[in-house]
Amino acid sequence: MERPGRTILRLLGIAAFVFLVIAFICFMLIKLGAAPPVVLLGGPNPMPEERAQLIAEYGLNQPAVVQFIRYVVRTLAGEFGRSWQTGATVADDLLARLPATLELMVYALLLGALIGIPAGVAAAFSRGRAEERTARGAGLVGAAMPSFLLALLLLLVFFRWLDLSPAPSGRLSVVLTPPPTITGSYFIDAILMQDAAAARSALGQLILPVLTLALLIAAQLTLQVRTAILMQLDTAHFAYARAQGMSRDMLTGIAMRGAAPSIWAAFCGQCAALLGTTAVIEYVFAWGGVGQYGLEAMSRGDFAVMQAFILLSAALSLLVHLMHAGVRRVARLRIRRA
């Protein structure tokens, strides 16, 4: 018998441990820095009063242990400091940019799964034939494809040569005003506000970055789903089903059901690592999301932003991990009842 109280306590303990480890890494980023922390946090030329304020805020004149404890407490309170590039607090900057990133990631994941899962299933079922080699080869090329190269190739073809796509200049044509925030997705918000021009522009801007990310996701999913299905094709119950002369569709269903946990795990794995790739794609398309913000902070040494960005990326994959575990748990309960 499981005791829910103990499970929750254990989960909380693990969460606290994970948070401390990640906070420690973020804290160490400043200690690794070649410049004094005041410069890393306050920019190349902090004013004397800014300097004094930073030293007081972070306790920079105190021992490292005290600094770390202060950092943990501040982070738990949602204070991530100020970006010396934008001048705003990092928390505000991140919140303002998060919808752009989520919009990109959600559409890309949906499209990627829509391409990758059927391709992987088809590759597995055509074992040893040309279709399999094609799908697997495409998957390997996609796995080797540098994310920025795919983005640039698509831009070269569809923007520069065919002129079908708008310039990589963010989420909306510069002459339009963004729709009021309802869901955070420009495209959906524009539709809700019945703003046809904004909706068309938002969709146009979305297509290439979403396609880039989706193809990268699909390539990996194809390989992973193929492997998961192949393992099902070798099981005894599948051989029995085939021997009974079931139709191709029913056989696919049986293999899919068996492979579902692996496919779900592969999909969640893609979600968890996605922010890294998304950051690069945002950078190419000047998307203005948290990824581009974080990447630019890294290349300019804006340490407060860097720390918060790493924390955010870990929080996202922790959420995905919980989602993965939760669904698996529910599915297992259903199997036990059945």
């Binding site: 990640i22 690794l32 820095g33 690592a273 922010l275 790739t277 790493i310 990326s313 870990a314 994959s317």
Partner: peptide, 24 residues
């Protein structure tokens, strides 16, 4: 193992980028 799992929550690409950005 728990330690590795915890660090693993940071996407490896971003951790590598942040480490280099921090060290210079």
């Amino acid at each position: 193992r728990r330690l590795a799992q915890a660090i693993g929550f940071i996407p490896p690409l971003l951790l590598a980028l942040a480490l280099v950005a921090a060290m210079g």
